[in-house]
Design a protein around this nucleic acid. Structure first.
Length: 160
DNA sequence: GGTAAGATTGTCT
DNA sequence: GACAATCTTACCG
């Protein structure tokens, strides 16, 4: 399964919105590990979310991907046909790609499991407020490719 | 030891 | 637009 990242969100050090804000726990341990690894957590006990660990303790949440290859496998896991709905959102993305807690802490350069590579730079990026948290901690750290049809709609839709 | 809230999604109104 | 599903962590007693 291959996809192009079209939406991401940043969580930094001293960030009240970050899971790492209140210190290490068994669940967020990966965020305090070496950079370039995956941090996978379960949201609301149902959905998996995939992050890439940067300079600890910080990470980037992958919110949406434009599916390129393996559409059938994704549709099978998701139980949805609409290509647009396959990876448009953190939980959806993880489900489509088959990401589980087993992938927590896995380096993102392992082509046999997780592989995130630099591709063509996305020139037209929109920067917006983050999604899914109280307004008090919102920061303009969400990045969406302008014009993509594959981003999550967010709370009030991506800005232009 | 008990309760409230959360980096979400799908379904119903 | 509102709410349930479901489980882990945070916080209070």
């Amino acid at each position: 399964m291959i996809g192009r990242i079209v939406e991401a969100e940043a969580y930094g050090r001293g960030d009240p919105g970050s899971h790492a804000y209140r210190g290490p726990t068994p669940r967020n341990a990966s965020m305090f590990g070496p950079a370039g690894r995956a941090y996978v957590y379960i949201s609301h006990g149902i959905h998996h979310c995939l992050n890439v660990v940067c300079d600890a303790p910080s990470a980037v949440l992958l919110r949406a991907v434009e599916p390129l290859e393996g559409l059938e496998a994704m549709a099978l896991r998701r139980g949805v046909d609409e290509p647009r709905l396959l990876c448009a959102g953190p939980g959806r993305l993880a489900q489509a790609m088959g990401i589980t807690l087993a992938d927590d802490g896995v380096p993102i350069h392992r082509r046999d499991r997780l592989w995130i590579a630099a591709g063509e730079p996305v020139r037209d990026m929109a920067v917006t407020l983050r999604v899914g948290m109280s307004d008090a901690v919102n920061r303009p750290w969400r990045f969406v490719e302008r014009g993509t049809r594959f981003a999550s709609r967010g709370v009030s839709g991506p800005r232009r």
